[in-house]
Simulated scan of single mutants.
Amino acid sequence: MAFHNLKLARFVFGHPPSGTPDFDTEALHSDPALREARDRAAAGDWMSARQVIDDAGTDWELRATRIGVLARAAAENDGWVYAWLGAEPDNVAAVLVQSSMLSHRAGEARGSASAKDTTEEQFRDFHRLSREAAAAGQRARELAGPDDPIPWVEALGTMFGDQITRSTSFDTIYTEGRRRDPHNFDLHRTAIALRCEKWYGSHDLMFGTARQVAADAPEGAHAVLLPLYAHFEYAMRTFAWDSRSKQAMGACREFFRRPDVQQELDGWIAKWQAGPHSPGRLNHVRQWMALYYTLAGRRDQARDVFDEIGPHVGEPVTAWAWFWLGDRFGYLRAWWWAHGK
């Protein structure tokens, strides 16, 4: 992993400067307890995974973050997950790790290319794994406690590849998820993605959902920043859907430099900054802010947010790849620009 980061940094910078961001997700510097649990689980100690999830309590975004990290690790080595399920088949956390693991494998099977560049085999594997993830998610909903929203978040996530489930259950799942956790970041982000023009909705539906969620959310909630995600989605779909050319990037930058766009997004950022934040998705939304400031040409603000993220980035958000040729490449290019390297 570190060798890959060094090669990428040399490609972007020539000679990587000191402080070049590190995408080593294995380090998990921000959550050492999770790092230890993941390593012990990979060695067969599934009880450590159960404990670190339980320790998140009712911070649902932190709990979901830990489930997601463990699920990505399980996608490479799933023996401990099935040992856990064998010992505790009714443990909702174990079933959620399984469901998230299968969703991750579905995404890997499809790849990140546009639909026209995705093969029939990739789509077939994507839909098969998505159906398996949906079945595990149904089991998790049956087992979940009365206030746990995570199985409903997972259920929305499987709807990208399961048309029957989506067409019959979206409103039911989304409504129940909101009842359990009205301002859950992951729930609303997934719903907005499903409602965007790229998938099964429209720009108007996507923006309407994002703005209403942000308006209803309290100060400091990560859901307040969902309009940033909607604007990224709109710009990518409108200006950079078929190309990552200089012309496409220029159009995206021009969009984010519009006074009305900046006025809106600056307002949401101010509301987010005014309250306390869960650690669960803090890195994620900070990357959104860094991306916005970069596209808007606001170097000082971009640099400040990059410095808040720090040198250990972990997994870059996919929106970087919407405007550059890859998420890590995009992050490094923006970081380089913000720091004047």
Rank of each mutant, 00 (worst) to 15 (best):
Gly267Cys: 11
Ala42Ile: 03
Trp335Lys: 08
Gln287Asp: 00
Ile150Ser: 07
Cys252Trp: 10
Glu219Ala: 15
Gly330Lys: 04
Gln212Leu: 09
Phe13Gln: 02
Ala302His: 04
Trp337Ile: 13
Gly208Thr: 02
Gly177Asp: 06
Arg50Asp: 07
Glu176Asn: 05
Gly111His: 03
Trp288His: 14
Trp60Phe: 15
Pro182Asn: 13
Leu156Pro: 01
Asp24Glu: 12
Tyr174Lys: 10
Asp59Val: 06
Gln287Asn: 05
Val12Tyr: 11
Gln247Trp: 01
Leu205Trp: 05
Leu6Glu: 14
Leu295Tyr: 10
Met236Gly: 10
Trp241Ile: 06
Phe11Gln: 14
Phe239Met: 11
Leu295Cys: 09
Ala321Pro: 03
His15Cys: 07
Gln51His: 09
Trp336Lys: 14
Trp336Val: 05
Asp171Trp: 04
Ile173Gly: 03
Ser169Gln: 15
Val224Ile: 12
Gly201Ser: 10
Arg110Cys: 00
Gly267Ala: 12
Asp24Gly: 13
Asp78Ile: 02
Asp90Asn: 13
Asp55Glu: 15
Ser100Thr: 07
Phe3Cys: 05
Gln212Phe: 01
Met236Ala: 12
Pro279Phe: 00
Val153Asp: 06
Ala144Ile: 02
Ala221Pro: 07
Leu129Asp: 08
Glu36Trp: 08
Ala134Ile: 00
Asp24Pro: 05
Arg141Cys: 14
Trp335Ser: 08
Ala155Lys: 02
Ala42Leu: 01
Gly111Asp: 06
Gln51Leu: 06
Trp324Tyr: 15
Leu62Asn: 09
Arg180Asp: 04
Ala27Glu: 12
Gln287Gly: 08
Phe232Leu: 04
Thr172Arg: 15
Leu62Lys: 07
Leu6Asp: 14
Asp90Met: 08
Ala290His: 05
Leu332Gly: 10
Trp80Gly: 09
Thr209Met: 07
Val69Cys: 05
Arg298Glu: 15
Arg281Trp: 08
Ile192Asn: 01
Ala210Trp: 00
Phe207Met: 14
Arg179Ala: 13
Ala193Ile: 04
Met101Arg: 13
Cys196His: 03
Met47Phe: 10
Arg286Met: 04
Phe329Gln: 04
Asp181Met: 02
Gly326Val: 13
Ile269Gly: 02
Ala296His: 08
Tyr174Val: 08
Val153Asn: 12
Arg303Met: 09
Glu120Asp: 15
Ser103Arg: 09
Ala83Ile: 03
Leu85Tyr: 11
His203Gln: 07
Thr119Tyr: 08
Arg298Met: 10
Phe123Ser: 02
Arg110Lys: 15
Arg141Ile: 10
Trp199Asn: 00
Ala193Pro: 00
His312Leu: 13
Asp186Trp: 14
Ala9Cys: 08
